[in-house]
Simulated scan of single mutants.
Amino acid sequence: MEPEQSYRQVASATRRIRSLAPTDIPDILSIELTGYSHPWSEAIFRDCFRPDYRLWGLADGDGLQGYAVVAYLFDEAHLLNLCVGARWRGSGAGRLLLRHLIRESFREHMQRVLLEVRRSNAIAIDLYKTEGFVQIGERPGYYPASPVREDALVLALEGPEAG
């Protein structure tokens, strides 16, 4: 499925993006456990509910389908975690969340959106690059993995006022 086609499907569905609250943590954790070999703990998510972070969830009548966690530091938005529940992967849900967090970050005067992604995560890398992100670096051994740690690619998207 082409990226634009999947985005149109999501945009026309009954889904909506909303700010998350600590009461969403059980749903966030159930998605997190399906998405990562080394998932974040409840304590890490609880620590993200503070003024310099933004947490958004993609929801519909069935509950939370995915979420994004972004930290704001000075004029930079750092995407820390974006995950979609297994049932909704490939539906464009991740793209919808990504576009939302980009739009909101630039609306809140961030000059750049930055993220790390596992070198082996070709699907996520493709998503980010089709949305305009470019590789600006690497972080060797950044991610836990077995038997050795995995490198991260550092990607960035410059805002309309950057430069």
Rank of each mutant, 00 (worst) to 15 (best):
T130G: 05
E76G: 02
A156S: 11
R16A: 14
G137D: 10
A13C: 12
Q135G: 06
R103I: 00
R103S: 12
G66A: 00
L55W: 07
V134L: 10
F106R: 00
Y67K: 01
L114R: 01
P51M: 05
L73I: 13
D62Y: 05
L97K: 03
A156H: 03
I31K: 03
G94L: 08
R89E: 09
A86Q: 14
T23W: 04
R119H: 12
L157R: 03
K129R: 14
L153I: 04
I25D: 02
R46S: 09
H109R: 14
Q111S: 11
R112Y: 06
S19C: 12
R16C: 13
W56F: 10
H109P: 00
L33W: 08
R87Q: 12
A11S: 13
P39E: 04
Y142I: 11
D52V: 00
L155T: 08
L29N: 04
E158W: 06
I31R: 03
N81V: 12
L153M: 06
G137E: 09
A43Q: 14
V117F: 06
L155Q: 05
L20A: 11
D75P: 11
F106W: 00
I102P: 01
F74D: 11
Y7R: 14
S146I: 14
Y72G: 00
D62R: 01
R149I: 13
L101H: 07
G132F: 01
P3W: 04
G35M: 09
R103V: 02
P51K: 00
T23V: 05
F133E: 15
F133S: 01
L114N: 03
H78F: 10
D75I: 12
L96Y: 11
L114H: 03
I123Q: 15
S37P: 12
D151K: 05
G66R: 04
P3V: 04
V134K: 09
E131L: 08
L114Y: 02
L115A: 08
L153W: 13
I28R: 04
D52E: 06
R99Y: 10
D126P: 02
L155N: 03
R95G: 09
A59R: 00
R54E: 02
L101K: 05
G85C: 01
P140I: 09
P3E: 06
D60C: 10
N81Y: 10
V10C: 15
I28E: 01
E150F: 04
R118A: 04
R99T: 08
D24L: 10
I136Q: 00
L55Q: 06
A68L: 11
Y142H: 04
D62Q: 11
Y67W: 01
L64R: 01
Q9M: 14
R107F: 14
L98E: 01
